[in-house]
């Protein structure tokens, strides 16, 4: 029983991690309807930045977020402005896919050029020490990630529902043409949204870096799970991504323990494929999002 609880606790923690890295992805897709295949590399870039700030300036990794999140916002905004915007009207969808796939390839290899194939370990600043919560032990840093993910979901939902700009973002997401007719500058909303989505990844980077060694391929490792989470939760749904992340975290942890740790990924991707094929709108996907899929 105790083991089971520990496995579940591990799953919840993993879910928090998956949530924090998936929120930006689902936000960007929900609004711009573009799948950012370079999402994992944004995370990688943020983690390297965190690594540099903590090792060079000696700051606490969490403190680096004040630089990392704005930096990623700029990276996202520039990506939208220079790469995605010119391709939005493209007749063939494949150019949008290849654009971010190309960006991803370039970023992975740029990191390889700069940092080499070695692993960069961000100082953990005590975040890897475990704490006892009732019958289970968890890492301190993981708990903070889960809490931050939950707060981020609440914060974004508040922003999108209660502020004028947030409503404008939702309007663009739901009906681009009508939003234009309301006087909303759609291109500006897109740049802003991509920036916000990327800044969420920046936040995630600073939280994740102290716990996981950074390497050029870390993004690929995480992003596939993020895609699973986002599709499961319903593309574009932020609360959906959170719930999806928790489900996948639990599934990953349980499968790793009861089936075998080397088949965890096969189970997770198996679930992904089943959902993608049977219910592409995901758990919380609305009619609107579905229309982009089938």
């Amino acid at each position: 029983m105790e083991t089971f609880l520990q496995v579940v606790a591990n799953g919840l923690m993993l879910g928090g991690l998956f949530a924090i890295i998936s929120i930006g992805l689902t936000l960007i897709f929900g609004i711009i309807k573009v799948v950012n295949f370079a999402h994992g590399e944004f995370l990688m870039a943020g983690m390297f930045l965190t690594y540099l700030i903590t090792t060079q300036l000696g700051l606490h990794p969490y403190a680096s977020v004040v630089v990392v999140a704005p930096a990623l916002f700029v990276l996202g905004a520039v990506t939208q402005k220079l790469l995605i915007q010119p391709l939005l009207s493209a007749r063939d969808e494949h150019v949008q896919i290849f654009a971010t796939v190309g960006l991803s390839t370039a970023m992975i290899n740029l990191a390889l050029l700069i940092f080499g194939a070695d692993i960069a370990n961000t100082p953990s600043s005590g975040l890897r020490s475990s704490i006892q919560l009732g019958p289970v032990r968890i890492l301190e840093g993981q708990l903070y990630i889960l809490i931050c993910a939950a707060l981020l979901v609440v914060g974004l939902e508040f922003f999108l529902r209660r502020t004028q700009t947030g409503r404008a973002i939702r309007a663009v997401a739901q009906n681009r043409a009508a939003a234009q007719l309301m006087g909303i500058n759609v291109n500006w909303i897109y740049v802003l949204s991509f920036g916000i989505g990327a800044a969420c990844v920046g936040l995630a980077s600073s939280l994740v870096a102290p716990l996981y060694p950074t390497s050029s391929t870390i993004g690929t490792y995480f992003v596939l799970t993020a895609f699973v989470v986002v599709v499961l939760g319903g593309l574009g749904s932020i609360p959906g991504a959170f719930v999806g992340a928790i489900i996948i975290g639990l599934l990953d942890s349980l499968a790793g323990f009861y089936i075998g740790s080397d088949l965890r990924e096969a189970v997770v991707f198996g679930v992904f494929l089943v959902i993608l094929i049977l219910k592409p709108s995901g758990l919380f996907g609305t009619r609107l999002k579905l229309s982009h899929i089938s």
Binding site: R167, R170, Q174, N175, A178, G183
Partner: peptide, 20 residues
């Protein structure tokens, strides 16, 4: 029509008044 389907009627009307 082109309404914002997942917004309330009130929100739709507020979007109408978006222009400065």
């Amino acid at each position: 029509r082109q309404l914002f389907p997942d917004m309330t009627v009130r929100e739709n009307l507020l979007m109408g008044a978006y222009r400065r």
